[in-house]
Design a protein around this nucleic acid. Structure first.
Lengths: 207, 207
DNA sequence: TTCCCACTCTGACATTTGTCATACCGAGCG
DNA sequence: CGCTCGGTATGACAAATGTCAGAGTGGGAA
């Protein structure tokens, strides 16, 4: 009798039941992969990880509660042996950078096939990194954010279209200062106004 | 020998290969369902539908090229026998309304399980309608758009943060008129300014 | 240490935006 | 026929926003 190697124990986290379930089914077809836990939100993913200590956590980037990167950060501290792989629908350049900074080992768009994903899971489990070439190219060409920390913060507060007075209150700054930051952010991003600037920064994943 | 009834022939359209493939695999497990075609974009979905004439088309709401509702509209004209079922990640109230108006027979969020989806496919195939109760409640409570056609149009042109002058040019209107429309839209939506109005209208699916 | 840069603020000014009154046209309705 | 409503426009005014100059602080790099 041949003893097969221990399978890779997986945690799947995605808020869409349809995707999560389907993914679990497909990955289970690979006999060296084993889905040991599923979660539908950031906090739940964390709890499941603590309970089951998976080898690899496959996390959706956008989840209610806490996004994939946030979960990855916590995981890094609590379960250093658990590799994290992020999958996402909308891959913004900046997200990739943030993910890598959080110790994520793999970053792939949902446009890959399940077969390919299985291979990537094995790659990550083996201790290697994998980043989708397309996303990597985007991230490189988009470059670093030219915004200072404060500019980015103020821009975030401006994201929902709030007037300057409200932004100032939320950021605990004087309205004049807020306008200065917004103005410089708009200039740096070469946008028409702050709303377009918010859109641009979002597209590049800088907020 | 028992003759089983002819299976329901399905078209799956979703731009995310991972989801589409997984879904196809899961639905194929049901022996009365048969996936006969897959597509990754709106136009492709249309072409596949023409070629394979499926009984039920399962369409993602957001796809490159043409969204699910647009595809449904074309399908209704070209293949009246083909029932359309829309699945979506972010179910906005207005989308449901538009979908129903386009002759869509089912509308469900991706949070349902594959098992449930299979049942819904059967329901739709049998000629019945199915709308997720949660989404239906949202749609009812959100009500109809209070915006006139022009107001909605101008609001759309304003969506990317363009200044009034640019909106006016794109809409072929005088700047003053644009400001009037925006002002009335902002009032109707009880928003702080047009950017917040755009956000609100988007959330409710009115643009 | 000196210099630069991010951070913070103020004041002033020009431009853009939001609001309102008013007006004309055409379609649909009682 | 007269009314109302949506679409279009203008002019005027107030408020918000964008831009700029200047100025003080503190931390880090040369």
């Amino acid at each position: 009798m041949t003893t097969s190697p221990a399978p890779v124990r997986l945690l799947l986290a995605d808020d869409e039941h349809l995707i999560r379930g389907a993914l679990a089914a497909l990955l289970s077809l690979e006999d060296d992969l084993l889905v040991v836990a599923e979660a539908a939100s950031g906090p739940e993913a964390l709890a499941m990880a603590r309970a089951h200590e998976p080898d690899v956590a496959v996390l959706d980037l956008q989840m209610p509660g806490a996004d994939g990167v946030r979960v990855a950060t916590s995981l890094r501290a609590e379960l250093p042996g658990c590799r994290v792989l992020i999958v996402t629908s909308h891959g913004r350049p900046g997200h990739l950078k943030r993910a890598l900074a959080a110790g994520v080992r793999g970053f792939v768009p949902k446009t890959v096939s399940a077969q390919r994903l299985a291979e990537i899971i094995r790659t990550v489990h083996a201790g290697n990194r994998y980043v989708d070439p397309e996303l990597a190219a985007d991230a490189i060409s988009a470059g670093d954010s030219p915004l200072t920390a404060r500019e980015a913060e103020v821009l975030e507060f401006a994201a929902d279209g709030a007037p300057v007075a409200e932004i100032a209150e939320r950021a605990a700054l004087s309205p004049g200062t807020v306008r200065n930051y917004l103005s410089s952010a708009v200039t740096k991003l070469e946008a028409e106004n702050r709303h377009a600037a918010v859109r641009l920064a979002r597209e590049r994943g800088w907020v």
